[in-house]
């Protein structure tokens, strides 16, 4: 890894954090509507995971998708514009927070029905196998999603057909207000892969370097024909499930303990302690991220609303 790469990871994580903080403000001002699920606390997961993907590798995730979009190379501008429902948003203002996507960047979307995108991920991988593409499909989902039938059908199918999928469970300890052990028969979620004869491992999701390292290895194995594998990433969402969550299901002490493991803080210290970057250089990255997000908000606010005819566009493929 070059110094540039280290700084780039840092930059991405800080952009995500700032973008989410600004989104929360814009939501409170009524400029963002619908549901808004923030990724704060989980930045290291998608940043590490996606940092080692090749352009041909496909990424698909659930509705907690802003960070994933940034890591896939979408600009803060087009993400923010989508959150504001503007014509310049990545889904032309029709998708909103839960439905970001950029197919050209091989980001196959945020998906709002829990677990529904898992069988779709199997299909993306099938498409690659069928067409002899050497690509890996990375499918991200929450701990809660491992309790719905879709999850089990998709894992089984991927193993039966030996599909190149990396199943990534972001175990942030809760599905809405339900703690993992209240909803899942096994709380060590990676054990669920055992039922499908699938290799699995777990990694600390607050440490971007660890996520990156294990991901790089798994991509390689899958690319070399290992078949599907399962990665459980242990993490925590610092904010509520979505805006307006009363958070009656967890104690502030618990949240505080996790806040001490802030993924950005951990990586910040890592860069300093290993003499990879100076405090000044990191502050500079924070400054740049701040400007990028300010610019994105200004761009989104100044962007036009989708025109009325957009309502009837894209129901079917034109032509």
């Amino acid at each position: 890894m070059e110094k540039r790469d280290y700084l780039d990871l840092y930059h991405q994580m800080v952009v995500i954090r700032r973008l989410e903080e600004r989104s929360a403000e814009l939501y409170q001002q009524g400029k963002i509507g619908g549901f808004l699920h923030l990724y704060i606390g989980q930045e290291a997961v998608s940043t590490g995971l996606i940092s080692v993907r090749r352009p041909e590798d496909r990424i698909i995730t659930a509705y907690r998708d802003h960070g994933v979009a940034i890591n896939c190379g979408l600009s803060a501008r087009e993400v923010m514009a989508e959150l504001l429902g503007k014509a310049t948003g990545c889904s032309r203002g029709k998708g909103g927070s839960m439905h970001l996507a950029d197919v050209k960047k091989n980001f196959w979307g945020g998906h709002a029905i829990v677990g529904a995108h898992l069988p779709i991920a199997a299909g993306l991988a099938l498409g690659d196998v069928y067409q002899n593409n050497q690509a890996v499909t990375v499918c991200m989902f929450g701990d809660g999603a491992t309790n719905i039938g879709y999850f089990h059908e998709a894992l089984n199918l991927s193993k039966v057909w030996n599909l190149p999928v990396l199943w990534v469970c972001e175990n942030n300890q809760y599905g809405m207000g339900t703690a993992v052990e209240r909803a899942s028969a096994v709380s060590e979620i990676r054990r669920k892969a055992d039922g499908y004869g699938m290799k699995s491992e777990a990694v600390d999701g607050m440490d971007v370097m660890k996520v990156r390292e294990v991901s790089a290895r798994l991509y390689e194995e899958i690319r070399n024909g290992s078949g599907p594998q399962f990665l459980e990433v242990i993490t925590y969402r610092f904010r509520g499930h979505s805006m307006g969550d009363p958070e009656r299901y967890r104690s502030s002490e618990e949240v505080k303990t996790w806040l001490e493991n802030d993924p950005i803080g951990i990586y910040h210290r890592y860069l300093l302690e290993n003499d990879i970057a100076s405090e000044e250089e990191l502050q500079q990255q924070i400054q740049m991220a701040e400007e990028e997000v300010n610019d994105a908000v200004a761009f989104a606010e100044a962007s036009p609303e989708p025109p009325a005819e957009e309502l009837f566009k894209h129901i079917y493929v034109e032509g």
Binding site: G33, G85, K86, K94, E305, P306, L311, F312
Partner: peptide, 16 residues
Amino acid sequence: QAEVPLPYNRTLEQMA
């Protein structure tokens, strides 16, 4: 309702 999947954008959604 207009025969479209409902869009996110507020104005378009209300139009539908």
